[in-house]
Structure formats: C-alpha cells, structure tokens
C-alpha cells in the first residue's frame, strides 16, 4: 500500500565558496509537512530523523505513529513504521521490539494518546522496562480533533471543552506523567525538553541520541517528553506560543532530566 508523495524537494546542497553546515536530514522524506505554521511536531520529527541519520540506523529503526495530528508521521519519517490505535502505540512498539530485539524501536505520541486513553499501556510498557524510546509530545491540548482539553491542559486554560478554563472540580489536575514514570524501575532515562528555541532543539537532539544509545545497550525504557505548542489550538501566533510556553507551561512542566542513569552527565 504505497502512499503518493508529491515531491517538493528544493534544497540546495551548495553555495559559492561556502561549506554546507546544515540541511534537511536524508531520512526525512521530501513531502512538505501538513502541520499548522509553527507547530513543534515537525521540529521533533526532523530532529528524530537527524539522530537516525547520524547514528546510521535507518535500516534498523522501526517507529510507531499515534492517533492525533502526527498520525501521518510515517509520511515524513523514511523508516519502517506502524500506525497504532489511539493510546496503543507502546503496546504495538512492545510487540515489535520483542520479536525484533536488535532493532531500534520508538513510539511517538501526544498527550491525549499517551496520558489519557493509553495510560495503562504507558505505565506498563515502562514498568516492563521495554527497551524502546518513547517520545511524548505534550502541548496540553487535543490538536487534531479541534482543540479540546487534554489530561495535561493547565488549570484555567481555555479549550473548546473547557470554555471557562479547566476547572479542577470537574477535570482534575494536569497530569505530570513523566514525573510518575520516574518512579518505575523500568524507566532508565526520563527527560523533559522543548523546541521553542535553538538551544532547546540542540538539547532534544542530545536526549534522543542518548536514548538510542541506551537502547543499543539494552538499558530499558527511555522517555523523552517535549513540551510543545499548538498555535491553532491555543489560538495564538507561533511567536506568541513561545512566550506562553516559557511563562505558563514550563513552570508546571520544568525542563531537564527527571531521571538519569547513575554516573551519567
């Protein structure tokens, strides 16, 4: 079942008298992203594929796409991929990794997928210490279905299903799933990153590289949360989302390693 991909490749590889220092990774397909302007999803896609390129593991990498805006992640990532049901990505990844233990397996999920409907799968996958990388995009909203409240939506945050702001009385508190997962012995590396500025992107890349390295060493589950934006769902310009992330999201979801291996830098 092949997917038609209009090629839109227009990426020059040379400029007069200069060295190429940065270009679109090879393992990203040529297809232009369908995401809204300024969305973090495609940044994370790109960085993930950059890491696959640099580690030279395209032929050994298998990804699992979620249900949500990134449901079509497999259109962009030029690695073998499976599309899972909502919430089930880590169970699917478990199935793949268990029968192909020498491959690099990652799951990619949003907050509704990983921290609401798939909570059981999330916790038990980590609890088994499945030797996979779990990428978690936390933007506090259901983007694809039109901006509804997510388990990670901030208290008071307005969404289409919390039009007066999230109220604890009815919706409980935003769930800090990464913090919960650190309690499980199966979690080897748990970190929270963001791609709101160039340094954030650099740090994410390091975190993903380390995660694949740990997976190669069979260390257990690596969990990389990326606190992300949703310009359309938040009803902001992409530039405004950077401010919102810094002022509203990061205080609740502070960036940095939540659990790192003993002796790791």
């Amino acid at each position: 079942m092949s997917i038609e991909r209009p090629s839109n490749h227009d990426f020059p590889s040379e400029a007069e008298g200069m060295d190429l220092v940065y270009c679109r990774p090879e393992t990203l397909t040529d297809l232009p992203f369908h995401y809204c302007p300024g969305c973090s999803h495609s940044v994370v896609h790109r960085v993930l594929m950059e890491v696959v390129d640099e580690l030279n593991i395209q032929d050994k990498t298998i990804g699992v796409a979620p249900v949500g805006c990134s449901v079509f992640a497999y259109h962009y990532m030029n690695v073998d991929m499976q599309e899972a049901a909502h919430g089930r990505a880590t169970a699917v990844a478990t199935g793949i990794k268990r029968v192909l233990p020498d491959r690099f397996v990652f799951s990619y999920q949003g907050d509704g997928d990983l921290a609401a409907i798939g909570t059981a799968e999330t916790i038990h996958t980590v609890n088994r210490g499945e030797n996979i990388l779990m990428v978690f995009i936390n933007n506090g909203i259901y983007g694809m279905t039109g901006g509804q409240m997510a388990p990670t939506t901030l208290v008071g945050q307005v969404t289409t299903t919390s039009p007066y702001g999230r109220q604890v009385e009815f919706a409980g508190h935003p769930i800090k799933i990464a913090d919960m997962l650190t309690q499980l012995p199966g979690a080897y590396y748990v970190t929270r990153q963001a791609v709101h500025n160039p340094n954030g992107v650099r740090k994410l890349k390091k975190a993903l590289t380390k995660s694949f390295q740990y997976q190669k060493e069979g260390k257990g589950t690596c969990f990389v949360e990326v606190v992300s934006n949703c310009p359309s769902g938040w009803k902001m310009t992409p530039v405004e989302t950077v401010k919102y992330l810094e002022e509203q999201m990061f205080p609740l979801y502070p960036l940095g390693d939540l659990k790192k291996p003993d002796g790791a830098k």
Binding site: F11, P12, S13, E14, A15, G17, M18, D19, L20, V21, Y22, C23, R24, P25, L28, P32, F33, Y35, P37, G38, C39, S40, H41, S42, V43, R46, V195, H196, N197, P198, V201, R202
Partner: peptide
Amino acid sequence: TGCVNCALVCPEAAITVFRQP
C-alpha cells in the same frame, strides 16, 4: 554568520545553512 539557529527551529525543515570555510 551561519550559526544554524534559524534552521534548528524551522518546523518545515526549509532552511539550508552554509558557512565560509
């Protein structure tokens, strides 16, 4: 200056960066 910052944050992977040797 070819610092790459713009390319790092670009959600479309639309930026290619070059620098003088």
